Computed example of a mutant assay.
Amino acid sequence: MELFADRAEAGELLAERLLDAHDPVILALPRGGVEVAVPIARRLDAVVEVLVTRKIGYPPAPELGVGAIAEGGEPVFDMALLHRLGLTPESVAEVVRRERHELARRVRVYRGDRPLPPLEGREVIVVDDGLATGNTARAAVRAVRRAGPAKVTLAVPVGARGTVRSLQKEADEVVVLKTPLDFRAVGQWYAYFDQLTDDDVLRLLGRR
């Protein structure tokens, strides 16, 4: 299966599948989702903003995500994984507290004192650079729903098939360009997949 050259190219291709959107608000999940979302917003002549999310990590191995949280929402947990690890949501409460603190810090970095655009009654497109476990996307979609939008679309260039199916129960529509059988990680489907910084995000949004 052909690779995306980079996130910007993936966003341009994804935009072609979103042309029917009506005056949408585009919310990008940082950091990689921002680089995908900017060309979409340009093509759709739409507002783009960051929706900050944070992974909730397994305390002995924080890189293993047991859930996620998005601004304006509540923690979302992979309950099957928690059970296998012998954990409960209560047992990772301290991790959640720390991630809420870091989430608030990143909101200040990316938006300052500006709130998210009004979402009630609007069509909202949530954008990320790919779906592996789907925890952050699930947390984001649920947080957006709390604001009362007319429609929530999740748009990603590539995703694991099982994750895409599960998120079709969360969003009104999931738009994905590739669902490869041999999916192992999001980055494997990009020829260039560098790690972005906060400064990169601000530059992409025209705030640097």
Rank of each mutant, 00 (worst) to 15 (best):
V109Q: 02
R111V: 02
L13N: 02
V174Q: 00
A37T: 00
D20S: 15
G33I: 05
M79K: 14
D194A: 13
D172S: 06
R111C: 01
A137T: 05
R184C: 08
R207C: 09
E2K: 14
V186M: 02
F193P: 01
L87A: 08
E16K: 15
T88P: 00
G86M: 14
E120I: 00
E2Y: 05
G148W: 08
Y190G: 03
A140N: 08
I69R: 01
V107G: 09
E170M: 12
E173P: 06
L3I: 03
Y192W: 11
L154E: 01
A104W: 05
P118A: 14
T163M: 08
E12R: 15
D6Y: 07
P75V: 04
P149H: 10
E71W: 05
G112E: 08
D200P: 04
L116I: 11
V152M: 04
R100T: 09
D194H: 01
F193S: 02
D194E: 14
P180G: 10
T179Q: 14
A21C: 07
P117Y: 11
P115G: 06
P117K: 14
E120G: 14
D6A: 11
E173W: 02
P89K: 13
P157V: 07
T153Q: 00
L81E: 12
V48Y: 12
A41R: 04
L85N: 10
L119V: 03
E9C: 10
V25I: 15
Y110I: 12
I40L: 10
V158Y: 13
L13I: 04
V109E: 07
V201S: 10
E71K: 01
R208L: 12
E71C: 03
G187T: 06
G134R: 03
R111L: 01
M79P: 00
R84N: 15
P118R: 13
A37C: 01
T197V: 08
D194M: 00
E99G: 05
P118Q: 11
D200M: 07
A147N: 02
L81W: 06
H22K: 14
T163F: 06
A191R: 15
V201L: 09
A21K: 00
E102K: 14
R100C: 09
R122W: 09
D113T: 15
A143T: 09
V50C: 05
L204Q: 03
L116Y: 09
G33A: 05
A160M: 09
G72M: 06
P59E: 04
D45N: 15
P62L: 15
V76T: 08
H22F: 06
T163S: 15
V175G: 11
K55F: 09
V109T: 14
G73M: 07
P59F: 05
V66E: 00
G32N: 05
V144Q: 07
D172G: 10
L51T: 11
T179C: 07
I26F: 05
E49Q: 13
D128C: 10
A137I: 07
A15C: 07
T88C: 11
V47P: 02
D113V: 15
V107E: 13
E12Q: 15
L13W: 01
G162V: 03
D182E: 11
I40R: 09
V174F: 06
L29H: 01
G73Y: 08
P39V: 05
T88L: 12
V92G: 04
A28Y: 06
E35A: 15
L18V: 09
G33N: 02
P24H: 02
V109W: 02
D129N: 07
P115V: 09
R165F: 12
L167G: 12
A70L: 13
